[in-house]
């Protein structure tokens, strides 16, 4: 408990936490509402989205889908960066050394980091939901649409969002521990989340086995889960797997990333 409190205190007061959350909220508002609103009011619609589709994407009742569709790629990348920085920076600052000589077992220290990151990520998803809901109600009111609050189905979308966020958090933590620094962890993570999986999908159109593989890679699984709970129209969202299959793969990744990071943290010398 002390480890979670300690980590939470330092993450809470870390400007990087709020900068990344802020950037993500601005992105989700800009791409989810501002551009759609402008397109709806006289923009040049080259994506051949019908007016009805634009309106539907901004309706308050569809806010769950709006939250989850951003997470497989760009939201995930932001979360990965946060986790990789939070864990990797400790090696350069020497704070892991301070943490591991403070008293708690290494497993407890790692659990503290994961627990605090988990709380921050839950907060990020909650803020995304609140901000999206606020934006959608604002747009609906401005446009004079009939609107209603999201139904119980929103919890499914939020649950999927949390699972996707947990996977990217675990991935970032794993990279931070493996590379023992923030720069390489962030670089590799972003490369994977934004470039590598997309390149593999491109190769997949030529090679069948690669195509099958891309569906179950971390980003692919996240995209498939987002697609299964109604997220659509955003980069990285897929509809190749069922929601259950995608969720099971994501759970597997969480276990593997967190387990491997903790194992390395416990076993490796800190020199």
């Amino acid at each position: 408990m002390g480890s979670v409190k300690a980590e939470l205190l330092r993450l809470w007061k870390w400007p990087a936490t709020w900068v990344l959350i802020g950037v993500w909220l601005v992105m989700t508002l800009t791409f989810g509402y501002v551009f759609n609103y402008l397109a709806l009011n006289g923009g040049t619609n080259t994506r051949s989205m019908s007016q009805q589709q634009l309106i539907s994407a901004m309706q308050p009742e569809n806010v769950g889908a709006a939250v989850v569709r951003g997470l497989p790629m760009f939201g995930g990348a932001i979360i990965l960066v946060l986790a990789a920085l939070a864990v990797g920076s400790g090696y350069g600052w020497g704070t892991w050394k301070t943490t591991l000589t403070a008293g708690p077992r290494r497993v407890s220290a790692m659990a503290g980091t994961l627990g605090a990151l988990g709380i921050v990520v839950v907060l990020l998803v909650a803020l995304t939901f609140v901000v999206n809901l606020g934006a959608s109600i604002t747009v609906a009111s401005l446009e004079g649409w009939d609107w209603s609050l999201p139904g119980l189905g929103v919890f499914k979308a939020l649950g999927a969002s949390l699972l996707i966020a947990a996977m990217w958090t675990g991935f970032g933590v794993f990279l931070g521990v493996v590379t023992k620094g923030p720069a390489l962890a962030v670089g590799l993570g972003l490369m994977w989340a934004i470039v590598t999986e997309n390149l593999l999908r491109g190769v997949g159109s030529l090679l069948g086995p690669v195509e099958s593989l891309t569906k179950v890679l971390p980003g692919g699984s996240a995209g498939n889960l987002a697609g299964a709970v109604g997220g659509s129209g955003a980069p990285g969202v897929l509809t190749d797997l069922s929601g259950t299959t995608a969720a099971l793969f994501l759970l597997g990744y969480v276990v593997v990333f967190v387990g491997a990071a903790t194992f390395l943290k416990v076993r490796r010398d800190l020199v």
Binding site: W14, G94, T95, A102, G103, G112
Partner: peptide
């Protein structure tokens, strides 16, 4: 010393104290 550069001296100690 290994401390968080963005925290004050007191907050750094508070973080360490929470662990201990």
């Amino acid at each position: 010393p290994g401390f968080y550069p963005y925290l004050s001296g007191r907050d750094n100690l508070r973080v360490h104290a929470a662990r201990r």
